[in-house]
Design a protein around this nucleic acid. Sequence first.
DNA 1: TATCTGACGATAG
DNA 2: CCTATCGCCAGAT
Length: 92
Amino acid sequence: MGSELTEFEQAVVAVLDQTEPGDVMTYGEVAAEAGFPGAARAVGGVLRRVDDLPWWRVVAASGRLIPHDPKRHAALLAEEGVKTKNGFVVLD
DNA sequence: TATCTGACGATAG
DNA sequence: CCTATCGCCAGAT
């Protein structure tokens, strides 16, 4: 077993695991909820390494989508019932 | 142990 | 509105 996650990764996974379809959080929110306030950048690192997480439910603090795949990101959010416009999340 | 990287955040121009 | 810069933190090498 070498694929064990660190405390930080486990905390992030737990937070995202609690999210449900239609729910959207920012990197800073996930970090704070995981118990690591200010570690928004580190959260991005977890989502990049671990693909078993609903990364599409995580958006930037400004409501902007992920610069990695904004097109795919918007499509996934749309399937969950989240509206997007021009790469931004539309609050409803 | 030191250094670099990065799905970020906020501020300045 | 967009680009640039600094600060932040954890992971990887």
